[in-house]
């Protein structure tokens, strides 16, 4: 990370979904805004800006992190994975496929953050119990009441991935 002379901005290197990006921003800028506005990765959603709802969850070096209150300087040089890094509609990740199969969305606004939290869970615990899935999601809120479909989708993905 290099401080630029003319203003308060720094030039930072981000590795997002395996691609390197150079961005010039103020170092305390939350990672969320860099992902959404500089890298045009709109899948990471703004929900509260306070790290309370989980809508903006991404993985940083494999760990789930709320990108709305993580300064971009803290993510520089680390591997960041966003929802777009898992797959797309044509080649979905098993978690994304399972969310579609279970119709585990109403408005869907919470889905990106929840899928990223679930990815982190399945990476360390490929066969979670229902209670473990629910516990892993305690930092993610869903307002539509889609909870049981979401839990079912994560269990379905776990099963599919272990086949």
């Amino acid at each position: 990370m290099a401080r630029r002379a003319e203003d308060d901005t720094v030039s930072a290197t981000l590795i997002v979904n395996g691609k390197r990006h150079e961005v010039v921003v103020e170092p305390e800028t939350p990672l969320l805004y860099v992902l959404r506005n500089d890298l045009k990765l709109k899948g990471t959603r703004f929900g509260c800006g306070l790290g309370q709802c989980g809508a903006c969850t991404v993985l940083v070096d494999g760990k789930p992190v709320q990108s709305c209150d993580l300064p971009v300087s803290a993510a520089a040089g680390k591997a960041v994975t966003t929802i777009e890094g898992l797959g797309d509609a044509a080649r979905p990740h098993p978690l994304q496929r399972a969310f579609t199969a279970e119709q585990a969305a109403q408005c869907g606004y919470c889905a990106s953050g929840i899928i990223m939290t679930a990815k982190a869970l399945l990476d360390v615990n490929p066969h979670p119990t229902e209670a473990q899935i629910r516990s892993a999601l305690k930092g993610n809120l869903c307002r539509c009441g889609t909870h049981q479909r979401i839990v079912r989708a994560i269990a379905r993905a776990a099963e599919e991935m272990s086949r």
Binding site: Q96, F99, A104, A111
Partner: peptide, 21 residues
């Protein structure tokens, strides 16, 4: 019939007015 909008929403495609640029 499955919701036609879910695949885009769960793969992080721009889907909301919040994502409009």
């Amino acid at each position: 019939v499955p919701r036609h909008d879910i695949p885009a929403k769960v793969t992080g495609a721009p889907a909301y007015v919040q994502d409009l640029e």
